[in-house]
Every structure is written in C-alpha cells, then in structure tokens.
C-alpha cells in the first residue's frame, strides 16, 4: 500500500477500451479494487485495473458512484444518486462484482 498512497489516481479500463482516471481514495470504497491493489498483483504496480467484463457505459456509472460516495461519505441525509432504469440490471451485476453492498451492520 505504500506506493499506492504516492499515486493519487488509478486508471480503470473497460472491456471496450475506455479508460477512467479515478481518485484512488474514492475507488477504494470497492473491496474488489482494494484487494487488487493490496496484493502483489500487476495492478498494484501499474495502478491500472482492467475489467474485461464491464462495458464503458457501466464503468462510467460506477466511477460516477465512486465520486458520489467520496463526496458524501461523511454526510447525513444524502440524496440518492440517479440510476437510469435501462442499465439497472447491468449496474447491479457490476455492483455485485465491485462488492458495493451494505457493509456489516450497515443497513444501506
């Protein structure tokens, strides 16, 4: 994790080649990404995570969520993020993949 703190940003790559540069601290809300970066995998060295199963559209929304989470992480009464109905199922699968579920003891 030592070298991760030096690199403030991560690059997330979708299966159709879109690259998203994300604040590392925001992306670490996902235990999946956290796990990728903690271990001695290539992601940890290059700060670049490739997701061959997630399309650019969905990954964009996930990145949106990372920043939405980062902005609101300490606030109360946070307004909900808009989720377009048509990509709801794909996004739900992505949320499952990124482990973005309510934490232990947290009902949300």
């Amino acid at each position: 994790m030592a070298e991760d703190t030096e690199n403030k940003y991560l690059t997330l790559v979708s299966n159709d080649g879109f690259e998203f540069v994300v604040l590392a601290e925001a992306a670490l809300v996902s235990p999946t990404i956290k796990g990728m970066l903690r271990s001695p995998f290539v992601e940890a060295q290059t700060n670049r995570c490739t997701f061959p199963e997630i399309s650019g559209v969905v990954l964009e929304k996930v990145v949106d969520y990372f920043h939405y989470w980062y902005r609101n992480r300490d606030k109360e009464n946070v307004p909900d993020m808009e989720i377009p109905a048509e990509m709801c199922l794909e996004l739900l699968m992505a949320a499952n993949y990124f482990n973005l579920e309510p934490g232990p003891g947290q009902a949300w």
Binding site: W69, A85, C88, F98
Partner: peptide, 26 residues
C-alpha cells in the same frame, strides 16, 4: 429501524431500489 443515515447508500441498494421501481420493465 436502527439505520444510521451517515454516508450514501451502497450502489447495490440504489440499483435494487431502482429495479424494484421499474420491475414492470424487466
């Protein structure tokens, strides 16, 4: 309900809520 409303909802919860609202489209 014992929910401490600090921080945003998880993406999964948001998706599930949206899906439940639009279940007739699924």
């Amino acid at each position: 309900d014992g929910i401490c409303a600090i921080g945003p909802k998880s993406l999964m919860t948001l998706c599930i809520e949206t899906l439940a609202k639009n279940i007739d489209l699924a």
